[in-house]
Design a protein around this nucleic acid. Sequence first.
DNA 1: CACTTGATGTTCT
DNA 2: GAACATCAAGTGA
Length: 201
Amino acid sequence: MKLPLSYYSAQDVLFLAQDLLGKVLFTEINGEITAGIIVETEAYNGIYDKASHAYGGKRTDRTETLYSHGGISYVYLCYGIHHLFNVVTSVEDEPHAVLVRAIEPLIGTEIMENRRNMPASKAAISSGPGSAAKALGIDRSFNKKDLTGNEIWIEDHGIQYPSEDIVTGPRIGVAYAQEDALLPWRFFVKGNKYVSKPNII
DNA sequence: CACTTGATGTTCT
DNA sequence: GAACATCAAGTGA
C-alpha cells in the first residue's frame, strides 16, 4: 500500500503531480495518525522553472533538500508563518518537486480539528498548502524525511478520479515567474470542496 | 461577496 | 530593506 521508493524516481514531474491526486498522505506524530486524500498539487520543474526555488541550479541550505533523490519531503517556511509540504521527485541533482496544495481529511479528523481550531466541515481546514500542512501537523522538522519511513508517508488506496474530473490550470501565487507563471502545472480534482482558489474550469 | 491587513523566516540586493 | 509557492480575521456593501 505504501508507495515504494521507485514511484518517486520518475523523472516526469508533471505526470507525478497528476498521479498523486487521489493518493493518501499520512503523518504519525506522538502516536497520533492523521491522513488526507491529495486533491490539489503543483509541479515545480527543477532548474528550468522560474517559479522553482532551484531555478538556474540555485543551491542554498534551504534548497539543498531538492537536490536529493526522489522520495523525500521538502518542507519550508513561507511568508515566515506557513509550512509548505513538497514531495521531492526524480533522481539526485534533478531538483524536481510536487507541492501538495490541498487534502481531503480522511483519518484522524478530530486531531486535525484541534490543530486547526475549526470544524472539519469547513473546507478551509485543509484547503491551501499552509492549511493542509498544518492539519497534518507538518512543520520544518519534517524536512528531508524519507517518505517510505514511519513518520510521513503516502499510500495508494486505489482512489482514481475520472480523467474528465482532473483539471489543470496555471499555478497559484507565482506571478513573479513571468512566462513560467502561465504554465498549466497545477492539477486539482474538479468540484472537490477542499481545493483552494478557483475550483471550477 | 470582494477587498484589506497583519503575522514574519529565508534569501537576495 | 524588500520580496516571497499564505492564511484568517476584519471591513464594507
